[in-house]
């Protein structure tokens, strides 16, 4: 899932300064799971903004709140039309994709990002998430024992480990495991150490130009085809 961190209250207050009526918009998917912008965080932020405004004595914002099932999918945005009729801005607690989906749907409405979208990762323990995928579009996990060197090696090198690893840790961050030592140990366990003797060619960055677009390979007619075949 996508992992994000809510921006500081100070930064959010600075962003909303020009706008009187602010809709705080949560997202019910990844942002809920990573505690950055779900219904609960929307409500907390709403209160925090009101309290801060009352304390400071300046600012005449009025706030409303709403949480969509998903901000990144147009079909879930339809319900918004009632919410945004009388607001001056949307403070989105969706990831960067959510913010842009709102902006694309409402060309005349300023949209502000309430979170810093950080990475794609998984939960390690309660309240801790680790990055695991760089969405490079060129997956080589088969060759690296299911451990991604693009994401987990700080240099993202394909022929590792480099000479900087010590006691299984990364030269750039002594608290972080060296991805290539992890790969080595797992390949050893899987009796596939011969993979460490291979030359891994350079990455093909052309295969993954930005911005990317993905078209589903499953045809919309497939259901009917299947019926015909059956």
């Amino acid at each position: 899932m996508i992992v994000a961190e809510q921006k500081t209250l100070e930064e959010i207050r600075r962003m909303i300064t020009p706008y009187a009526r602010v809709l705080i918009l949560g997202c019910g998917t990844c942002m809920t799971v990573c505690d950055a912008g779900g219904e609960r965080e929307v409500s907390f932020l709403h209160n925090a903004l009101r309290v801060a405004q009352a304390k400071s004595g300046n600012g005449t914002h009025t706030f409303s709140e709403y949480t969509l099932k998903r901000q990144c999918d147009p079909e879930f945005l339809d319900v918004l039309s009632d919410q945004i009729t009388d607001v001056d801005t949307v403070l989105s607690l969706g990831c960067g994709i959510g913010v842009q989906a709102i902006a694309e749907r409402y060309p005349d409405l300023p949209v502000l990002p309430g979170v810093n979208t950080s990475f794609m990762g998984m939960a390690k323990e309660l309240g801790v998430w680790d990055e695991r995928c760089a969405a490079c579009g060129d997956c080589r996990l088969e060759e690296t024992a299911g451990i991604c060197p693009i994401t987990r090696c700080t240099k993202g090198i394909l022929n590792g480990p480099c000479a900087g690893t010590k006691d299984g840790k990364c030269e750039a961050n002594k608290d972080m495991d060296c991805a290539w030592v992890l790969i080595y140990k797992r390949l050893e366990r899987l009796e596939q150490l011969e993979k460490m003797r291979r030359y891994y060619p350079m990455r093909n960055f052309r295969a993954i130009p930005r911005p990317k677009r993905l078209t589903s390979r499953i045809s919309v007619d497939m259901g009917e085809d299947n019926e015909d075949n059956g």
């Binding site: 090198i157 022929n159 000479a163 900087g164 030269e171 350079m202």
Partner: peptide, 28 residues
Amino acid sequence: LTGDHQVFGNHPTAKGVYDLDSIQLIKM
């Protein structure tokens, strides 16, 4: 060489390139 990571130096916020690693550079 692959190179010392940029965090060690005097521009720790720089983008590290690492388009290649040392072995790919040797071969090239």
